[in-house]
Computed example of a mutant assay.
Amino acid sequence: MTSERWPTELRLAKDRRSLRVAFDDGTAFDLPAEYLRVTSPSAEVQGHSPAERKTVPGKRDVAIIAVEPVGNYAVKLVFDDLHDTGIYGWDYLYRLGAEQAEKWQAYLDELAAKGLSRDRTR
């Protein structure tokens, strides 16, 4: 399977709170770590069907501690909460960037509907 878009830059911010992804079509996205964590393509978050998808609260302050290549088609992100099972393909990262406003608002709406918070419970 080949991607229609190819990344030309993957850069983790110094504070580890965002990942810059640029593509060969000239688009670039700064994707917050929290957004990447709560939209992880992992089975832990997405489940094995749409009905199993989880709303992940408490990740406002999450950081990315590693960006690991997976072949030539994806990266695995390791977060400081030790979540590391999501494989972010180039098309998925592009879609996350292109649809960020809508996906982020849907996430905020889900949190509110379920009485959950972006902040960690103590």
Rank of each mutant, 00 (worst) to 15 (best):
R37Y: 13
A13P: 03
I87N: 08
W104Y: 11
D24P: 03
R120Q: 13
P7K: 03
R16D: 06
V38A: 07
A74R: 01
V21H: 11
V75L: 12
D25H: 01
R16Y: 02
A63Y: 00
Y73W: 14
V67S: 05
Y73T: 07
L12V: 14
I64R: 01
E4C: 02
R20W: 09
R60W: 10
R118M: 14
R37Q: 13
L77Y: 05
W6S: 13
G71W: 06
T2A: 10
R122V: 10
S3L: 04
A13W: 11
K14V: 15
R17D: 07
L82N: 15
W6E: 10
R95V: 03
A51F: 12
G115Y: 06
W90M: 07
R16M: 08
A28S: 15
T121E: 14
G47V: 13
L31A: 07
K103Q: 07
K114M: 10
D15Q: 13
A98W: 00
D61I: 07
I65Q: 11
P57W: 08
D81N: 14
L77K: 05
V70T: 04
V67P: 07
L116Q: 08
A13F: 12
A74M: 06
T8K: 11
Q105R: 15
E99C: 06
Y107I: 01
R95S: 08
D84K: 13
F23V: 07
D24G: 08
E110S: 15
